[in-house]
Simulated scan of single mutants.
Amino acid sequence: MSSVNEKQFSYEIDDFMPLEQLVTDETSYIKRPSPWQRLKQNRLALLGLCIIVGMIILAIVGPWLSPYTYADQNLALANQAPSQDHWFGTDTLGRDIYVRVVYGARISLSVGFVAAAINLVIGVIYGSIAGYMGGKVDRLMMGLVDILYGIPLLLYVILLMVVLSPGLTSIFIALGIAYWLTMARIVRSQIMSLKNEEYVLAARAMGVSKWRILFRHMLPNCLGPIVITMTLAIPEAIFTEAFLSFIGLGVSAPMASWGVLAAEGINSMRSYPFQLIAPAIAIGITMLGFTFFGDGLRNALDPKEDVK
């Protein structure tokens, strides 16, 4: 009998080795790559990140690389083709297009990042409160969102711009009022799916306050969708500002955003197409960069998505 027990309870030292040392090449698949590793495998996402960083650097240091300013006029040099002195040529008033394009990058990128910050603050707070409180509070808060959703965003912003008068400050205010709706809906749906999780119920049982549960425990678990939505909202804000400036509701002269430059270049497109090409390429490249990076970030933060 004793020999049987000894055989049943016999063991080797290796039986108590750490799990990490027992993982072989055949079982290494249990190690899931980190979001950064998944992002690095996506070439389009890395290309988009390089475009974004490059455009930010160009917006900061680009105007210093030229002796001209965005407002300098010289009618004797009007409508000159790209040359060694004027890399992108000059416009109808003799202003250097290169300086105006890189200066316009400051305005357009600042609009995108400010809109994303407003989107983050208002949308996250509003949506999380509505989703966590539920009941009448949720119906009232999301009813207001549904009403605002009934008005097209672009029309809504245009109406506000007419009331507030054109200008960069007016663009910030208009986007701040109307730009957080999608974020609020996404955060609300995430909070509603998390508020019955076991860790939330445990926190309630321990007497943790509602606001601590919401902002300390639940919102960090919504970080992925929040970051993705904010990243994809930046190119939309840039395009909205460019369109408003294109139709004359954006920044005022002599300031230059990409929309203003496109509006000026389209008037002389047949005779001097280079005046339109530069701002159009800047808008297109920047929007593609943010779109590529946002899509790659979504795949990296979602383990169900395969990196292609």
Rank of each mutant, 00 (worst) to 15 (best):
P166Y: 07
S268F: 11
V99Y: 03
Y68S: 05
M133D: 00
P18M: 08
G296W: 01
P33H: 09
E198Y: 09
T291S: 15
I266F: 10
G265H: 03
F274N: 10
N196T: 13
Y29N: 13
M17N: 12
L223M: 13
I122P: 00
W180P: 01
A237P: 00
V145N: 09
G294D: 01
S3N: 15
S108T: 14
G167A: 08
V111W: 01
L75Y: 13
A178Q: 05
P18W: 07
P67G: 07
F239M: 14
M142K: 04
I234W: 02
L22G: 10
V307C: 06
G176P: 06
P273Q: 07
S3F: 14
M192C: 10
R32L: 13
R212H: 14
I122W: 04
I281R: 03
I191Q: 00
W211S: 14
A130T: 00
F292K: 02
Y132H: 05
I56C: 11
A115Y: 04
S170Y: 08
R216T: 13
F274I: 11
L301C: 09
N299D: 15
A76P: 00
F292D: 01
K40F: 12
H86T: 02
I60C: 12
M255H: 11
T27V: 10
K136E: 05
Q84A: 15
A178V: 11
I13K: 15
G248R: 11
I177R: 04
M1G: 13
I56G: 07
W180R: 02
L159I: 11
I283S: 00
P225N: 08
G294T: 03
F9H: 15
S245M: 06
G248Y: 10
I177N: 05
L77G: 00
S66F: 03
S170D: 08
L46C: 12
M17D: 13
K136Q: 10
D295L: 09
K304W: 05
Y103R: 12
F215L: 11
E197S: 14
A174L: 09
A256L: 09
A242Y: 01
G294V: 06
I247D: 08
V4I: 15
G62Y: 06
D138S: 11
G265R: 01
S83Y: 05
L219W: 08
L297I: 05
P225T: 08
V99K: 08
V61C: 09
Q190M: 07
S110D: 03
T291W: 05
K136R: 15
Q84M: 14
V4M: 12
L22P: 00
P220K: 10
L58Q: 06
A300Q: 03
K31L: 14
K7I: 13
L155A: 03
T69C: 04
V163Q: 12
S108E: 07
